[in-house]
Computed example of a mutant assay.
Amino acid sequence: MSAASIVVLGIVFGLTVGVLFTVLIRAALDRGAEVLDLQATALPDGALAVLDALTQPALVVDGSNSVLQATPEALALGLTDGRALTHPELERLVDEARTDCASRGTDLVLVRAAGARNLVVTARAAPIDTTRVLLLIDDRSDAVRLEAVRRDFVANVSHELKTPIGAVSLLSEALQSAADDPDQVRRFAARLTTEAGRLGALVQQIIEFSRVQGADPLQSAEAVPLDEVLRAAVDRTRVAAEARDVSVVLGKKSGLWTLGDRAMITTAVQNLVANAIAFSATGGHVGLGVRSREGVVEIAVSDQGIGIAEEDLDRVFERFYRTDQARSRSTGGTGLGLSIVKHIAENHGGEVRLWSRVGRGSTFTVRLPETPAPASAAARPSRREKERA
C-alpha cells in the first residue's frame, strides 16, 4: 500500500471517529438537558393532588419564575397567563422567599387591566426546594369592598339624618317659645309634621335598602305575575298622584311573569312610579307598562317631567344622590329610592336602564329574566274577574 493511500485512510478514519464522538457528545448533552428539564418541572409526590384539592388561587414557579402549575382559580383571577406571573409584586415576593429559604407573606393591591376592579389579596410564598416556590393567594377584594360600602353607608346615613333631626329639634324649641301665639303654633306644628314625615320616610327607606342589600331573592324564588305587580304599584302611589294631579296610565295586560321575590319587585316598581310622580309637573302623565323581548321582561316607567341632565345620568343610582337638592327637599325625596331599584334588579339577575332628556322627561326600564306562567295561572281568575263575580 502506498504512502498516499495510508494518508487517505488515516484522514477518513479520523473524520469518522470525530463525527462519532460529536454525535455521542451531542446525544449526551441532549439527554442531560432532558433530565434537567424533568427535574425542574417534576413536582414532589402528592404535590399535584394537593394543588387539585385547593379551592383558593395557588401556583408553583421554578427558579426563573416560570409557572409550572396553577389552579383554575389563579387563572381566573389573571395571576398568570399560563407561563409567567402577571404581577411584578408577586415575583418580588417569590424571589424573597427563595433567597431567604423561608415563607414570606404580605398584603398586596394588584392593579388589573382597564375596566377590571383591582385585586386586594394576601399573598404567601413558601419554598418547595432550592428553586421552586409555592405561591398561595387569598382574594379579599369582595370583603374589602363590602367593608368600604358599609363605612360609606353609615357615614351617609349619619349625614342624612342630621338635617331632619336638627329641623325637628329647632321647630320644637320654636313651638315652645310661641306657646302664647296660636297662629305661630299652627305654623310650627305643620312644619314639624312635615319634617317628622320626612324623617320617617328616610328611616323606612334605610331599612328597605338594608334589607335588599343582604337578601338573595333567588334562593326562595317564586313565579311573579307582573301585571299584578304593576297594578299594586299604581294602587300604592294613587294618593301621591292625586295630590299632585298627575295621571298614572297603566298599559294593557301582558300575561308576563318573572322569577323572584314579589314584594321586592313591587317595591322597585313602586319607587319608580313614585319618583316619576314627584318629578312631574302638575297635571302631568306617567306611563307604566311591561313587554317581553328575547327572554327578558322589560318594565318601563315613563314621565314627562323635568328630565335629568346628562352629567347626572351615571350617578342617579348612587345612594343619597340627588340631582336637585332643593326640589328633593320639597318633594320629600331621600335619595335612596333609585338605589333600592338598582339593587333589587341586580339581585334578581337583571338590570335597570335610564333614558332622559332635560325638559322632555325620563324613562326607567327594569329588565328581568322572563319565566313561563305556571300551569295553575291559566285557571286562576284575575282580581277584576273576582270583582265582577
Results as ranks from 00 to 15, higher is better:
161 L>D: 02
162 K>H: 08
162 K>W: 09
162 K>E: 13
163 T>M: 06
163 T>C: 01
163 T>P: 00
163 T>A: 12
163 T>G: 04
164 P>E: 04
165 I>L: 14
166 G>I: 13
166 G>T: 13
166 G>W: 11
167 A>P: 00
167 A>R: 15
167 A>N: 13
168 V>K: 13
169 S>F: 10
170 L>F: 10
171 L>I: 10
171 L>H: 07
172 S>G: 04
172 S>L: 14
174 A>S: 08
174 A>D: 05
175 L>V: 03
176 Q>L: 12
176 Q>R: 10
177 S>F: 12
178 A>V: 01
179 A>E: 06
179 A>S: 11
181 D>H: 08
183 D>Y: 05
183 D>F: 08
184 Q>L: 14
184 Q>P: 01
184 Q>T: 03
185 V>F: 09
185 V>T: 15
185 V>M: 11
187 R>E: 10
187 R>I: 06
187 R>N: 10
188 F>V: 05
189 A>H: 11
189 A>V: 02
190 A>H: 12
191 R>N: 09
192 L>S: 04
193 T>G: 08
193 T>V: 06
195 E>N: 05
196 A>I: 12
197 G>A: 11
197 G>T: 05
197 G>Q: 12
198 R>S: 03
198 R>A: 02
200 G>P: 00
202 L>V: 01
203 V>G: 02
203 V>R: 11
204 Q>G: 14
204 Q>I: 01
204 Q>A: 15
204 Q>M: 05
205 Q>V: 00
205 Q>Y: 00
205 Q>H: 15
206 I>Q: 09
206 I>V: 15
207 I>M: 07
208 E>C: 00
209 F>L: 14
209 F>R: 09
211 R>N: 04
212 V>E: 01
213 Q>S: 06
216 D>G: 03
217 P>M: 09
217 P>N: 07
218 L>N: 07
218 L>V: 10
218 L>K: 10
219 Q>M: 12
220 S>R: 15
220 S>Q: 15
222 E>G: 14
222 E>C: 02
223 A>F: 01
223 A>K: 04
226 L>V: 13
227 D>R: 10
227 D>Q: 08
229 V>T: 14
229 V>G: 05
231 R>P: 00
233 A>F: 04
233 A>N: 05
234 V>L: 05
234 V>M: 06
234 V>Q: 11
234 V>N: 02
236 R>H: 09
236 R>Q: 15
236 R>V: 03
236 R>S: 14
237 T>K: 02
238 R>C: 01
238 R>D: 13
239 V>C: 02
239 V>S: 15
239 V>Q: 13
240 A>F: 03
241 A>G: 06
242 E>F: 09
242 E>V: 02
244 R>F: 01
244 R>P: 01
246 V>I: 13
246 V>G: 05
247 S>D: 08
248 V>Q: 06
249 V>M: 11
249 V>Y: 02
251 G>L: 08
251 G>M: 06
252 K>H: 08
253 K>T: 14
253 K>F: 07
254 S>Q: 10
254 S>G: 14
255 G>W: 07
255 G>M: 12
256 L>K: 06
256 L>E: 05
257 W>G: 03
259 L>S: 11
260 G>M: 07
261 D>E: 12
262 R>H: 14
262 R>A: 15
262 R>Y: 04
265 I>K: 10
265 I>Y: 08
265 I>H: 12
265 I>Q: 04
